[in-house]
Amino acid sequence: MGAGILRTYRLQVGITAVLAVLLALFAVLSPQTFLGGRIYLSFLSTIPFIAILALGLTFLVIAGELDMSFPSLMAMAGLLFAEIYLRTASPWLGLFAALAVGGLGGFINGVLVVKVGVPSIIATIGTQFFWRGLSALLASGLARNIAAIRGTDFHQLMVGRVLGIPAQALWFLVLAVFLALLLNRHVFGERVLFTGDNLRAARLNGVDTDRVRLMLFTMMGLLSAFVAVLVCLEMGNWWPTQGEGYLLLVFAAIFIGGTSVFGGRGTLYGTCVGAIIIGIIEAGIISAGFSGFWTRLVHGLIIVVSVSVYATIFRTGRS
């Protein structure tokens, strides 16, 4: 029985081991940094942004779809939040508007894919340009300073410190538990798995695959908007290229985590560990005394090695 569990969760065990090895390596290279607590508190304030986005995108990838537009949707939602806060001084109104435009943007992606029939990678590259362009146009290319929001209850609730722990880490934890239950133990998650595994088979079993995918695109839009608001609050600022850096990091977290690009299979735990691995590498490299230029190179190595391992050992390739 123990061996069976190990076999079932070998992917999760493997990815956790990779994280442990990385942490051990960094601790040896720079014990002052990695054996103290401060670096981990810093991780808790930055990694949740990648991780929450990656949770939502993992659902889409499992369902056999992609979303390339979420960084731009973040910019649009973040701008709306910042602008409405500056004009009305109401962060709640700003949050509501951000979620509304995020949900709408996600829903539009879904309609393009499900109803119009555009492959998701193409449709969302299109909407990626659209939302980036619209937000730049509306902002006249200028940043929005919302530093005044620091110290408000809203700021405390979203990104404040709870017993020293960044609130965004707690938001992430709540979302991760909820989404893991949704995927693995709820009937909706089962529909997601079959939609990605075999779309036609899912339909013949009575799964409304169109509805499932519309809901997933919408959920990704909502999560993108939520993270955009968190990022604006954490930085006290909105800027026109906000979100751009997340695209590849989020995809990297998902595929390092072991989710299959062909759909039907994926793990949110793997995605979370993948996000942590992606999030700690830069600090590890710099505190070990190497140049920051190494970061991308190491990211690249870890991605290539991990997906190669999955392809050879776990046979995740297309057969």
Binding site: E190, L193, A201, L204
Partner: peptide
């Protein structure tokens, strides 16, 4: 045609 999800466990 198959109505089974290849990667899914039998119980699902």
């Amino acid at each position: 045609e198959s109505t089974l999800g290849e990667q899914q466990p039998l119980w699902r």
